[in-house]
Each structure stands twice: as structure tokens, then as C-alpha cells.
Design a protein around this nucleic acid. Sequence first.
DNA 1: GTCTATAGGCAGATAGAC
DNA 2: GTCTATCTGCCTATAGAC
Lengths: 186, 186
Amino acid sequence: MATRGDKRTRLVKAADKLVQRQGYHATSLADIAAAAGVPLGNVYYYFRSKEALGDALIGQRGEHYRARRATWDREPDPKTRLRAFVEMTVENSTLLARSGCPIGSLCQELHKQGGPLAEAASGMFAEFLDWLEMQFRALGKGAESRELAVHVMSALQGATLLTHSFRSPRYIESEARRLKAWIEAL
Amino acid sequence: MATRGDKRTRLVKAADKLVQRQGYHATSLADIAAAAGVPLGNVYYYFRSKEALGDALIGQRGEHYRARRATWDREPDPKTRLRAFVEMTVENSTLLARSGCPIGSLCQELHKQGGPLAEAASGMFAEFLDWLEMQFRALGKGAESRELAVHVMSALQGATLLTHSFRSPRYIESEARRLKAWIEAL
DNA sequence: GTCTATAGGCAGATAGAC
DNA sequence: GTCTATCTGCCTATAGAC
């Protein structure tokens, strides 16, 4: 049901889903309000502007990924944690083929104009890069760790963009196979 | 001067520049007309719709990249041709940091909604992938060539997205170094 | 071929009754 | 806290004079 939970939560959830599918600019507050079962005018009781709702959306998305990484951190082996990250992308490949990466596509769109919302979106990237770097440090890679983190993130983001552009999971699958072999050989 | 050349050409050039900087949806026909020094109403004498102008823009961008690849094809060594491709990204890294990849960012945006314009945009990706595959075949990589082509494209697209998201050439430089060493070792 | 004026629609945001 | 009605502005696209 679109009408479960309090209205603020429903608005953020609806915004999250619609922005992922349609993009930030292409999603109107009327779309979001309708999907959340909230009258348009009432949106402004909870959020002073579309940007404020966007910020809440990014906050929730960031929290989602933090929780995800926390479950991976329970694994004792850093290589297992890295594999889990790659595997997440493979598992989501159907969704990624339809709408692209929730982080990457939002950054791409928002950074064309810049502003605080764009910075908030790249924050999600920064957190993932920091987490990846930590895994490589745990593997004893030292100063090289940041570069290795950038490599993993780049390969997956690029493959996700191709998967989105051709609407086929093939590209993610191909790069994931390669990355998993590369992790094994580290 | 914004007013050189015939009006149709000026409109496509202005559209190309503004769409690269601001994105397709965020760029209005009024923006484009003003930048080209053409009255808004006159745009519709040359293009029946914004989509038609977008299509011409993509056609021109595609032609630009075909010409680029043609110059690389004059190199006898396939590895040199691959290096030239990677090097193009490094040379453009300042522009890519500000606005993202002209192909990747357009695909990301247009494929959220789908339609013929989105397909035209992915066509530019497809042509680059075919070209890359040819280089690996020339290096005797056989059936594996497509996968290698996808790897190069993914790594560069992902690194470009990070460079755009953090407004720093660092990510492209890091991945380019890695890719060039990888090409050398093929 | 060129340009002005404007239609028609939808966006974000607000006023104010309840 | 909630909701309807509406303001204002920008967008694509068109009408029609020149």
C-alpha cells in the first residue's frame, strides 16, 4: 500500500522510487504526492521545497547503503566483503538495467547544475570509496588501497551505465566476473 | 562568434554545448536559440520539435567520434590505437570534470524515459564498443575481444563519472594509468 | 525564410479555509 | 495538521504578419 506509515515517510519513499525511475528533474512533486497518497499542497507542510525533499531522499538512500555495508562488515575476510559488494550489483542488475544506479545516475544528473544536493549525492560515493579503501588496507595494500578502491567503483559504475544504456544485465555480469577473478588474485 | 555559419548549424552547435553542460531536460529551446543568435520562433523552421534538434545533436556528436576513430585507425599498431582512446579521456579530463561524458551522461539521462532519442544516444556507445572489439581482434584476442572492449569502456566511463561527481581529474588519471599498463601487458 | 506574439500546459510554491 | 484553489513563471509549440 502506498498509504502505510506516516506521511513524511511515505513521501520520502515515493520520491525515492520515482526519482530512481524517472530522474530528479523529470519527477514532479505532484507525481510524488499522488504516489504517496498525499495532497499536493500538504507536501509543503513536511518539506519547505522540492530540494528539501530531495535531501531527505538522499539521506535515506545513504542510510540504506550504510546498513548494507554494516552487514558485510560482519564477514571476517576482507575478500568476502569485497565479493559481497560486487554481488550486490549483480543481484540488482535487472533493476539497474531499467533505471541505472541510484547513486551514479543521481550524481550525473545533479552535478550538471551543482549545488548542495549534488554534494550530498556524491557523499554516497565518498562513503563507498572509503569503505572499499578500508577493505584493501585490511588486505595489506597500504598506500595503493585508494587506487584499488577507485578501480572497483569505476568498473562497476561503468558496467552499470552500459547495462542501463543497452537495457541488458550482460555488461554488469561480464565486469563482475572479471572483478571477482581480480579480487581472488589479489 | 555565436553567429557564424548558417542558422541550422549554429543551432546544433549551441545545443551540443548547452546539453553537454546542463543536460537535455534542463536546456530549453529558448537557451539554445539565444546562444545561437536565432529568435525562438525560428527554431521551428529548422526543427519540428526539441526531439528533432536533439536527434541532430546526437548525429553530429556521433560524426565527431567517427572522425576521431578514423584518425586513430591510421596508426598501424592496435595497442597504439587503444592508448589513443584512453589518452583522449585524459586530455579532456578538465571538461569531463565539469560536465561529465557527452555520451555517458546523455545516455544516463535519456534512458530513464526511453524512446528513440535514448536509442540514438546508446548508438554512440555501440560504435565505440565495436571499434574497441576490432582492436582486440587485431591483437589476436578472438572471442574474448568483446569482453575486453566492455572492460575498457566500463573503466573509463566509471572513472569519468567519479571525476564528474567529485569535480577532480584524479579518478580518470588513476584509471587511465592502470588501463595503459594493462594494455601494455596484453 | 524570418520574426513577434502568444497559446496551452505543467512546474514549484503559497494563501487561507477548515 | 490538512487540503483546495490558485498564483506565477517557464516550457514547447504554433499562428500569422512581414
